[in-house]
Amino acid sequence: MNSFFWISYAILWILVVPLVILNLVLFRQLGIMVMGTARGVNQSGIPVGNKMPRATTTTLQGAEWSTGELIGTPSLMLFGSPTCKECAEILPDFQRIAMMNNVKPILLLFASADLALDYVRKIAYDDEVLIVSSEFANHLDVQVTPYAYAVDANGTIRHKGLVNSREQLEAYAKASRVS
């Protein structure tokens, strides 16, 4: 009886540890999907109220682009990926919402130039597209997609975090107009 107890005790612990990990993952997903937020992810990124740091990357056409170009125009920066399902769902509304709110839409893709070009053609996106390198993403502290920064005309971040819906895009666009 004693050995049976210890064997069953060990088996139970072997089952409990993965279940606890699975529950933590599910609670995070529930927070993202139902409440539209994931505190751990939204705490990453440049803090709201700070100026957007200087960083450079390239446009889809290969020209150099700097975050300094954000000064003077309220902007909505959306980080996405051609393989991101959520990105594909909100991209059709991205340009339209930015235009309706008089902010500049900037799409930043985690992809090679060729893959990004194919993706942009496929979705018929015709505004500015930037290629995100790992160095650029690290400098702006972006680790997931779809992630957005609402930047006002002074280059100050007014809102940041995951964007999973049209309503969130609208809130970000409105936040970028506040100075």
Rank of each mutant, 00 (worst) to 15 (best):
L109G: 01
S112A: 06
A113C: 03
A116I: 01
A116K: 07
A116F: 01
A116D: 05
L117R: 13
D118W: 09
D118H: 12
Y119K: 07
Y119V: 03
Y119E: 00
V120L: 09
V120H: 07
R121T: 03
K122H: 08
I123D: 06
I123H: 01
I123R: 12
I123G: 04
A124N: 14
A124K: 13
Y125R: 13
Y125D: 00
D126A: 02
D126C: 00
D127G: 02
E128M: 11
E128R: 11
E128Y: 00
V129R: 09
V129G: 08
L130P: 02
L130E: 10
L130R: 13
I131M: 12
I131R: 05
I131L: 15
V132C: 06
V132Y: 08
S133T: 15
S133H: 12
S133V: 07
S134H: 14
E135I: 04
E135T: 12
F136Y: 13
F136V: 05
F136N: 00
N138Q: 15
L140V: 14
L140D: 07
L140S: 09
V142P: 09
V142Y: 08
Q143E: 13
V144K: 08
V144P: 02
V144Y: 12
T145S: 08
P146I: 00
P146D: 02
P146Y: 00
A148G: 14
A148P: 05
A148V: 13
Y149D: 06
Y149C: 00
Y149K: 02
